[in-house]
Design a protein around this nucleic acid. Sequence first.
DNA 1: CTGTTAGCGCTTTCAA
DNA 2: TTGAAAGCGCTAACAG
Lengths: 338, 338
Amino acid sequence: MAATIRDVARAAGVGLGTVSRVLNLSPLVSAATRQRVLDVIAELHYVPSRLAHTLIAGKTRTVATIAPFFTRPSVIERLRGIEATLAGHGYNLVVFNVESAERRNACLRDVPRADRCDGVLMISLPPRGDEIAALHATKLPVVLVDTSASGLLGVCIDDVAAGELATRTLVELGHRRIGFIGDAQAYTATFNFTSSWERHQGFRHVLQAAGLAVRPAYEGFGFHGRYEARVLAREMLLLAEPPTAIFAASDTQALGILEATRDLGLTVPAHLSIIGFDDIDIAEYLGLTTVRQPLFESGAHGAELILSMIAGHRPAPVTAYLPVELVVRGSTAPPASA
Amino acid sequence: MAATIRDVARAAGVGLGTVSRVLNLSPLVSAATRQRVLDVIAELHYVPSRLAHTLIAGKTRTVATIAPFFTRPSVIERLRGIEATLAGHGYNLVVFNVESAERRNACLRDVPRADRCDGVLMISLPPRGDEIAALHATKLPVVLVDTSASGLLGVCIDDVAAGELATRTLVELGHRRIGFIGDAQAYTATFNFTSSWERHQGFRHVLQAAGLAVRPAYEGFGFHGRYEARVLAREMLLLAEPPTAIFAASDTQALGILEATRDLGLTVPAHLSIIGFDDIDIAEYLGLTTVRQPLFESGAHGAELILSMIAGHRPAPVTAYLPVELVVRGSTAPPASA
DNA sequence: CTGTTAGCGCTTTCAA
DNA sequence: TTGAAAGCGCTAACAG
């Protein structure tokens, strides 16, 4: 169908290698010959086969990204950082969306292969011990984004500290009855998600340091979604002594809490202070106080690391921690009683 | 590094072709030989190279998707439909995010190549005449999603009719001063986006049919974004005689209008009715009346078409129209004066 | 400077 | 049944 290097060589009356040299900008071709070859190439609309080149070079110029629930705003933003960086270097991005344990395992088993991609980026999905070993065995560059694992490079934030930051903000505003709504263990365990759990750790640290009781009724865990958070928040707010503030492990969940207050005719922040996490697009619109983490940058940085590893560098397998920032908006205030 | 078919053949003491036959489930291998080969394969952890297979077969088992601004909720949802369908058939999704005219052109030129992918899906990006010709020349299956072009398959909705539906809803509620906020021509022209323009056509049809004047001051066009829509809506609402209803070409823009009403201390729908488009996730939360289009399904259907074409089918190059649906929520009501 | 010759890892005849 | 050989389209090493 398409013209091959051989067709070009024949038409230009030169050897196969000469065409290859022209293609690869080798200086060992006379200007005249080069021009003749170039003319024929243009004439035949010849385009070198990526495939054949890939087979020889053993490089696919492709980076695979395994991402869970890639419609989530935070994941998307990371992907955008990845795509932008990769595209800037002529690399392709192959996306694998994970929404079940089976798919997660299948991806971890099948995706990291040298004949498929030059490197693997994993978002929020820490591999288990045996999987790490398998990953190392492939010799393929691997970078984790929004998670970490020993022996692998990672780009993430300090979720415990970020959880402390959010909770401390609430404590310093004078709140003493503070709730937390995050991801259910059963669900995070499926994917080994850690961020909600770690933010919860930070939450507890601050509560304890402030001498505040940790009340089970003030801690709600459910599937990561607006609806689930709404139900959990409703329960909490209907308590005889409801919390005056709630820290949500994500903005999506904070939205659910906002919905619950609306359902119950409560006003934010008069009746309840809410603090979310991520600073997704809609947070500003809703006036949600939140902990902003550099999503785009995490993807971009992860992609840069992969690219440098593909280029042959072998950076130490450490986890890079990106800074978070508290964005204060209208959903937080001192408690009414204070 | 990794074991090759030759290593297996040598270790099993058989010919190269025999291993290949075992791999390809050929019946022309004795059970004994097959077992021996299988054992060696397991022992050597041999995995056939996708690359080499691809070179031979001329198939990449990859579908490329060119999408503009893939962080937009509507685009994401289509991509999810695409990925889900592709993954279900063992195909990989390579994503190209387009955010500039240069990148659009580069993608259209470089992506549709048989050595890169088996088919191309384009979201919201109709190719121009010369590009269509080039696309045909590649012999590669191409399917357009959310747009159409003569000679190519497309999956979209009837945006004119949808625009009429939205506007008619407003007219039937009794509104006579109805505004429209959509994408600016200068910006859509860059990518040949048509949906906002067509929805606007529908808007005008209904206005004229209802004998209502089309007032330039009631039509605002800007970059597709919340902020721009907010500015446009503000202007419109500060008019001596402001519209009592506004139809936004997207939910994102409807959010901007919502923001503007809030800025001005107006109540929705008492002071202003708003109707959006897409029914993105947040629309329900905000109680936004909107025109829902099947986003996930459009992607899924587009992917199915591509897959069937890759399988050799040559469906007629027609555009499939998916149904839209009006979702009535709290942002619409009869005008206060009615 | 340039043509020729091996392969990359696999599929596919073609004999045996 | 099975082994050997001929490529797929290209690069790289090797003679000229």
